[in-house]
Every structure is written in C-alpha cells, then in structure tokens.
Simulated assay, not measured.
Amino acid sequence: MIRIKAGVPRRPRPSPRARRPLRRALALGLPSMWGAMAITYKLTCPLAQQTDLGARIVTSAVFFAVGTGLVLQVRRSLLRELRQVRRIAGAAQSALLRPLPPRLDGLNIAAAQLSAERGAVVGGDLYEVIATEHGVRVVMGDVRGHGIAAIGTVAAVLGSFREAAHDEPDLAGVLRRLDRALARHLGERARAEHPATGAPDPDSPVAEEFVTVLLLEIGADGALRALNCGHPWPYLLSGGGVRPVARADPLPPLGPFPLPTALPFVCCGQLRPGEALFLYTDGAEDARDARGRFFPLRDALAELVGQHPLPIPQSVLGSVFTALLRHTGGTPTDDVALLVLRNDRKATCPHLGAPPAMTHPQPTNHPQHNGV
C-alpha cells in the first residue's frame, strides 16, 4: 500500500550532476554580463563620450562598480571550490588517519596531528593503535617530506600495518610486512615516473624516500616491547618524572637499506597503571623559534607531569601543542604528530612492577633497556 502524505507536493530537487552545468553557466555568465554592461555603457551612453570632470567621475564610478562585481564573483567561486576541496581533504583524512577510539583494552588514548603545509589537513606523519590477540600494537611513523606529497606513502604503510598487526605473531613479522609494502609502493612510483626503465632516477625523490617507524606492543600485564627504525623513543610519564622508555640505537629507517636477518625486539620495561606513554614525531623536537632554539619537549612534559602526576592524555596534547605553537610563533616548519596512551587497567598482580622476561635474544648493538 502506498501512503500519500497530505500537503503541497514538493518539487523534485535537481541532482548534483544537473546542478553542475547551471553553476558553470552562472560562473561564466555573470562576469560576461558585467563586461557587456561596461562595454555597452562606453559605446552607447552619451555621458561616456564626454570629457569634462563630471563625466569622467561617473565613468570611473561605473567601471569601478563593474570591476568590484567581477572581483566579488571570482572570490565567491574560489571560496566555493576551497570549501569543496576541504571537505574532500577531511574525508581523505578520516579514511587515512581514522580517529582513534578514546579507550582501547584498558588504555586511555588521545592523538592529534599538525600539518606544516598551509591548507593541508594531512601530512607525512602516521599513527595507529590496534587491539589484537598478541596485545595492543602501536605504530608511529614519519615519512620523508611533508604535506600532500607524502600521503601515498602514509597510506601504503598504514594499510600494511592494519593487516599485519592481526596476522603476525611477533613484531619482527609486522616490520617486515611494512618494509615490503613500502618497497612495492616506491617501485610503483618509480615505474610511473620512469615507465621506460621502471627504475628510479638517482636524482629522483623516489630514490631518497624513507620512513622512520616505531612499533610498540603493550601486553596484558603492561609489558612493553618495541622495534625502532630511526624514530625517536617515546617518553614514559609517571609520578617519578619523564624519561625515555629506552636508549638503544635504532635500526636505519625503512627504505634505503634492507632489514637485517635478525630482528629481536627491545624490552622497554612495563607501563604500570596510571602511567602514560608519549609518542611523537621529530617535528616536535626539531621545531625552532625565531632565534633558532629547539623546542624543549622534555622540559614541557616534565613541567606538565610536575603539576599533574596522573596527566589526562587529552590535556597533554593540548598543553604540548599550545607550547609548541607559542614557541614557533604559530608556524611550524615540519609535520607534528603526538600520541598519548595512559594505562587505566587495574593492577591484578602484586609483582606488576617487575620487569618482563626476555623472550627474544638481544644483539650486542641492541641491549636490553628498562627505561633509563
């Protein structure tokens, strides 16, 4: 049975495709109309043929009005296109760097990114947090360069991580999957830029592309394991202050060099209840003020922890970004991404503070570290 609502029937609205020719006609028609009016006035109006002061003032006023109308019409068209581009960029950001849940497996999470490219909402930094049967796995990375040009590489690395985090039983397998995904992406870019040879030009940006990556795994008992390829180590925020979770020399960034045969993780101690991890990209520490001084990230975190021993992740992000923008005068020169994870799980074991057992052998150049 078809139900008919009482009242005046609504006229069908034209589809977006049907409205496009109308918008284009208006965009071209209105400036043409303004120009035709100016030419008609100049050729046919007797006042326009006179040379006295009053006639010249009137003529100038007419052409000023015509010019103002043209400028306003062009400005309106550009603003409409800019709004559409921003909507598309926002949709791309939501699909690429999708919003993280505020809570995941007992962790309180907050993340944000600031692009250095004016008008861009996505850049060369990447992050993701996924709860798996192997623990909560985190990736934080930084693609060489920033802004729109780095989006393709970010998509390749993030897409691979979102699959590998569930499939691979250890972090080494996840890292190798990311390395292969990056190699495929760079190979496709090389073939697109040099279809004849399929190899990157030594002077091409593809040949110099690299990604710093930090893989972190948080076990059910708070045990921290990490693999680091050229990325800054996170800071541990606790009542005792601020300290890096490890000081081991990281592996080279992904891209220029092959991964070593053995990839043992670095044991980083434990994330106890109430403690937080602060992950960041090097754009935060490399930000400079007008005198060329670097942003004192660790001092800013220490001051924050001194005021609030159990910092809220959202408050940490807001305070750090505010201090960073004040330091740089509101114009950072590199993308900045921040990620804060606080352990809100309840302590279930009396020996929770004991360091986790080492399950993988450590190489001589990557010794075990428990935070200091």
Rank of each mutant, 00 (worst) to 15 (best):
2 I>V: 14
11 R>T: 09
17 R>W: 12
18 A>W: 10
24 R>P: 00
26 L>Y: 13
27 A>Q: 13
44 T>C: 12
45 C>P: 00
52 D>T: 00
65 A>W: 11
69 G>C: 01
69 G>D: 00
75 R>H: 12
76 R>Q: 11
77 S>D: 13
81 E>I: 11
86 R>C: 01
88 I>G: 05
90 G>Y: 07
91 A>F: 07
94 S>W: 09
98 R>S: 15
102 P>G: 06
103 R>A: 03
112 A>L: 12
116 A>D: 01
126 L>T: 01
139 V>Y: 10
139 V>T: 11
144 R>G: 13
145 G>D: 05
146 H>M: 08
147 G>D: 04
149 A>D: 15
149 A>R: 09
155 A>Q: 04
163 E>F: 10
164 A>Q: 07
166 H>I: 03
173 G>S: 07
179 D>A: 15
183 A>N: 08
193 E>I: 03
196 A>Q: 14
201 D>N: 10
208 E>S: 14
210 F>Q: 09
212 T>L: 05
219 G>D: 03
219 G>W: 01
225 R>M: 06
225 R>E: 11
226 A>Y: 10
237 L>E: 05
242 V>N: 04
246 A>E: 05
248 A>M: 08
252 P>G: 05
257 F>V: 06
275 E>D: 06
278 F>N: 00
283 G>A: 11
285 E>I: 13
286 D>S: 14
288 R>H: 03
289 D>F: 04
290 A>F: 09
291 R>W: 10
292 G>I: 00
293 R>K: 09
309 P>Q: 05
312 I>L: 12
323 A>G: 03
326 R>Y: 03
330 G>D: 00
334 D>Y: 06
335 D>V: 05
344 D>P: 08
354 A>D: 15
367 P>G: 05
